[in-house]
Design a protein around this nucleic acid. Structure first.
Length: 725
DNA sequence: GTGGCCTCTCTTTTT
DNA sequence: GAGAGGCCAC
C-alpha cells in the first residue's frame, strides 16, 4: 500500500491536480515534455490505491505496444502489485481480445486470423484480379487505402453513397465489397476491421456493450490527438453517465492526420461529454529556455490550436545552432564533426539524435558516420515480423494451425518453389471457388480426383503430405519445437543459402531468431483460451516486433521526426531544414497539411534537452537530381535572438560531388549503381587492393585521381577508371 | 522458374 | 538514383 503523499511527491501543482482529481471526466492537455506519461501512470495508481478501484475496472488504451508495455511496467514498479486483470493495451490488441471473447456475436469464426497490411495488400490484389480489373489501370494501393479510410469512418460498402459517386469511386466500392466478402469467407480480419467489428459488436449487442460499460468504471486514453473517428466512436460506446473517461493528449503534437487521426476529437470530447474537467500541463521539464521559446514561436504560427503555452524554469541554455551547408554531403560532415566534438565533451553517442523528415535522408549521414567509425542506430525500416523470411515461416505455421488459411496457403504453396506454378495454383483456386471451400480442401480434392497433370499432382501430393505431417506434430510438440520443425521442413533455409551470401545469411539468422522468439513467447504466454500457436500467430500480426532489444550498445540515434515523437535526447540535430523537404513539397500548399508539418517541426524541436542544431543545405541531390534548395520557412519562424549561426573557420569547405562531378569512364569495370560522381565516404572496390573508402579526389573524367583508404589502413591515389563503385 | 530489362514512383507509419 | 514491380525471353 502506498500513501497518498508518495503518489503526489515530485509532481507539480497541475500534475497533482490531474493525478488526484475527483472522479470526473478529465481532459489533460499535456504539452511536450510536461510529464504526461508520469501523470497517466500516477493516476492509474491513484485510482487503485486511493479510490479503491480494482484493476478489473480499468481500461487503458494506447497506440503502440511500446507505450502499453511501458505504462504497465511503470504501474507495477510504482505499486508493486500484479496488474493482471487490468485491461491495458493498444486499440488493436484490445479489440482482438474482445473479438476472441465474442467471436460468435461478432459473426466471426473462432479461428479468425488477423491480416496485417502486407497481407491485406496481397489480398486486395488478388481480389482485383478475380473481378477482372486491370491492375495497371487500377491501383491496388489506392484501393487498399480506400477500404481502410472508409472502415476508419465506420463505412461499409453499402454505406458509401453510391448515387453521387463517379465511376472511379464505384469501382473502389466494388473492390471493397468483394474484398470484404473474401475476408468474411476466409475468416480474415484486417487492422481496421478489428476495430470496426468491435464497434458493430457493441452497436448490435447491447448486452455485450452493457457488460463492458458496467465493468469499466474508468477509461484512460493516451495520445488522444491521434485517435481516428472509429476509435473515438468505439470509446464512446463504452461511456455511460456512471463511468469516467480520462483523455490525455496534445493537439500541437498531432502528426498523424494523414492516416485518419482527427484532432477534432479533442473538441468533441469536451462538447459531447459535457462534464469535462480540463487540466493543462504547461510546465516543460525537458528543454532549455531557448529551445522551448523556439518551439513556442514556431507552433504559434498555427491558427488551428486549442491554445497552450509551454514554459520552463530551466536555464536559458545554449543558443540554437544553425548551419548552412553547401550540399547534403557537407551537411552530413558537419553533423558528424559536431558529434565528434560532443563526444569529446563527454556526451555519450546515444545522447545524440539526428532527425530527418524522410528516410531517404539517412544514407548520406550513415556514410559519414561509417567513415568516422561512429556507431549508429537507425530506427524504422522493416520490423522483425514484417521480414519476408519471417512472414513465410509464419505462413507455414499458420497453415499448420489452420489449414483453411488461404492467405497463408497462397504465400507458401510455391515458396520455396516446388513445381506448383501459376497454372496449377489457378486450377486449385478454381476448384476452391467451384466447391466453395478453402484452397487446402480444394488441393485434397484435386489429389483425390487426379484433376491435375501428373507432375503437378505429385508435387501437390508431397506438399499436402508435408503439411499433414506437420499438422499431426502440432499436438505432440510445444511451440518452440514445432516452430523449429516447421522451419526445417519448409526448406526455407536451403533456399536462402542459395541467395547472395550476406543477404541469405541474414535471413537464415532471422529464422533462427524466430525460434527464439517462439521460446520467449511460449514462456510468457498470456493467451486466454487460445493455443500457444494461435496466440503466437496473432502476436506476430499485432506486434510487428520491437527493434532488437539487444542492441543496447552506445550509438548515435537516427530516425525520422515522426518516430522521434515521445522520445527525448540531450543533443538533437534536425537536418534538411529546407523547403520541398520540410515542409514536404506535397504538404506545402495545403494550409491544413502545412500546419501538420509545422507540428512535426514542433515535435522535433521539443525532443531536444540541452542543445539543438538545425541544418540545411543550399544544394541537395534529391530523386537523382541536384537542385538548389531554399531554407525552410520554419527556420524563419524561430526568433533570431535564440539562434547562433555557425560558420566554420580555418577550413576551406569546398562543394563536393555536385560541383565537380567526376563521371566514371564508360569502360570503368562495371558499375552496379548509377553513380555519376564520386563523393567522400563512398565505398569503392579496386581489383587488387579490395574494398576502400574515398577520401579525396582531383580532376575529372576517367583520368581523375581518387584517394582511397583501404581496409588495411593504407591510402592510395588511384585513377578513377581502376575503381568499381 | 529465373534473370535481365523496362517503367514508375519517390513523405511520414502503427496496428 | 534506387528500389519495386511487371514483363518477356530463355
Amino acid at each position: 500500500m502506498i500513501d497518498q503523499a508518495s503518489l503526489l511527491t515530485d509532481l507539480n501543482a497541475a500534475q497533482q491536480q490531474a493525478v488526484s482529481a475527483p472522479l470526473n471526466n478529465l481532459l489533460i492537455l499535456a504539452g511536450a515534455g510536461s510529464g504526461k506519461t508520469r501523470v497517466l501512470v500516477h493516476r492509474l495508481a491513484w485510482l487503485m490505491e486511493q479510490e479503491h478501484v480494482s484493476p478489473q475496472q480499468i481500461l487503458s488504451v494506447t497506440f503502440t505496444n511500446k507505450a502499453a508495455k511501458e505504462m504497465q511496467s511503470r504501474v507495477e514498479q510504482l505499486l508493486h502489485i500484479d496488474t493482471r486483470g487490468l485491461w491495458i493495451g493498444t486499440f488493436h490488441s484490445l479489440a482482438h481480445r474482445l473479438l476472441r471473447l465474442h467471436y460468435e456475436e461478432a459473426k466471426l469464426p473462432q479461428s479468425f486470423q488477423i491480416l496485417d497490411s502486407n497481407d491485406q495488400q496481397r489480398l486486395v490484389k488478388r481480389v482485383m484480379k478475380s473481378i477482372g480489373l486491370d491492375d495497371k489501370q487500377w491501383s491496388p494501393r489506392e484501393a487498399q487505402q480506400f477500404i481502410n479510410r472508409h472502415k476508419d469512418k465506420m463505412k461499409r460498402p453499402q454505406n458509401i453513397s453510391c448515387e453521387a459517386s463517379d465511376f472511379h469511386t464505384q469501382t473502389n466500392i466494388k473492390i471493397y465489397q468483394h474484398y470484404q466478402q473474401q475476408c468474411d469467407a476466409d475468416g480474415l480480419v484486417d487492422f481496421s476491421e478489428l476495430l470496426l467489428r468491435v464497434y458493430e459488436l457493441f452497436r448490435d449487442h447491447p448486452t455485450v456493450r452493457q457488460h463492458y460499460q458496467q465493468r469499466f468504471h474508468h477509461i484512460l486514453i493516451d495520445e488522444f490527438q491521434d485517435t481516428n473517428r472509429l476509435q473515438y466512436a468505439w470509446l464512446k460506446q463504452l461511456k455511460t453517465p456512471d463511468n469516467y473517461m480520462m483523455a490525455v493528449g496534445d493537439d500541437d503534437q498531432s502528426i498523424y492526420g494523414w492516416r485518419g487521426a482527427e484532432i477534432a476529437n479533442i473538441q468533441q470530447f469536451q462538447q459531447e461529454l459535457g462534464d469535462v474537467h480540463l487540466i493543462r500541463l504547461e510546465q516543460n521539464y525537458r528543454s532549455t529556455q531557448n529551445i522551448l521559446e523556439a518551439a513556442n514561436a514556431v507552433i504559434a504560427q498555427n491558427t488551428d490550436r486549442l491554445g497552450k503555452s509551454l514554459w520552463t524554469d530551466s536555464s536559458r541554455g545554449e543558443p540554437i545552432a544553425l548551419f548552412t551547408a553547401f550540399n547534403e554531403q557537407d551537411e552530413a560532415q558537419f553533423v558528424v564533426k559536431q558529434i565528434q566534438g560532443l563526444l569529446m565533451q563527454g556526451y555519450r553517442r546515444d545522447e545524440c539524435a539526428i532527425l530527418y523528415r524522410s528516410n531517404a535522408q539517412s544514407r548520406v549521414l550513415e556514410e559519414q558516420l561509417l567513415y568516422h567509425d561512429i556507431p549508429y542506430r537507425i530506427y524504422g525500416g522493416l520490423r522483425f515480423f514484417e521480414r519476408a523470411e519471417i512472414k513465410s515461416a509464419m505462413a507455414y505455421l499458420r497453415l499448420v494451425h489452420h489449414p483453411a488459411d488461404n492467405e497463408a496457403f497462397e504465400r507458401i504453396i510455391n515458396f520455396p518453389t516446388r513445381g506448383l506454378g501459376d497454372k496449377t495454383v489457378e486450377h486449385i483456386r478454381a476448384t476452391a471457388r467451384e466447391l466453395n471451400t478453402s484452397l487446402w480442401a480444394a488441393s485434397q480434392h484435386c489429389i483425390a480426383h487426379k484433376s491435375l497433370p501428373t507432375r503437378a499432382l505429385t508435387a501437390l501430393q508431397s506438399f499436402v503430405a508435408l503439411m499433414t505431417h506437420l499438422q499431426e506434430q502440432q499436438t505432440e510438440l510445444d511451440l518452440p519445437e514445432l516452430t523449429k520443425l516447421v522451419i526445417e521442413h519448409s526448406r526455407l533455409i536451403p533456399h536462402y543459402e542459395k541467395e547472395p551470401r550476406d543477404q541469405g545469411q541474414a535471413r537464415i539468422e532471422n529464422l533462427g531468431e524466430l525460434i527464439n522468439a517462439s521460446k520467449q513467447f511460449y514462456v510468457s504466454d498470456e493467451a486466454e483460451g487460445m493455443s500457444p500457436l494461435a496466440a503466437f500467430i496473432s502476436h506476430a500480426a499485432l506486434e510487428s516486433g520491437e527493434l532488437q532489444a539487444d542492441q543496447h550498445q552506445d550509438s548515435v540515434q537516427l530516425m525520422t521526426l515522426h518516430s522521434a515523437k515521445g522520445l527525448e535526447f540531450p543533443i538533437v540535430f534536425m537536418v534538411g531544414m529546407e523547403e520541398q523537404l520540410f515542409p514536404a513539397k506535397q504538404s506545402a500548399y495545403d494550409p491544413k497539411r502545412l500546419e501538420e508539418e509545422r507540428r512535426l517541426c514542433y515535435v522535433g524541436i521539443t525532443r531536444a534537452q540541452h542543445k539543438l542544431y538545425l541544418t540545411h543545405a543550399e544544394y541537395r541531390r534529391l530523386y537523382g537530381e541536384n537542385a538548389p534548395h531554399t531554407a525552410s520557412r520554419f527556420l524563419r519562424e524561430i526568433p533570431k535572438e535564440l539562434v547562433e549561426e555557425i560558420r566554420l573557420r580555418n577550413e576551406i569547405r569546398r562543394p563536393l560531388s555536385y560541383q565537380k562531378p567526376i563521371k566514371p569512364h564508360a569502360n570503368t569495370p562495371r558499375l552496379n549503381t548509377g553513380h555519376t560522381s564520386w563523393h567522400v565516404g563512398q565505398m569503392v572496390t579496386h581489383a587488387k587492393f579490395g574494398e576502400g573508402m574515398v577520401l579525396n579526389y582531383e580532376g575529372n573524367g576517367p583520368q581523375a585521381r581518387i584517394q582511397v583508404r583501404f581496409g588495411n589502413g593504407d591510402s592510395k591515389w588511384l585513377v578513377a577508371s581502376a575503381l568499381t563503385v
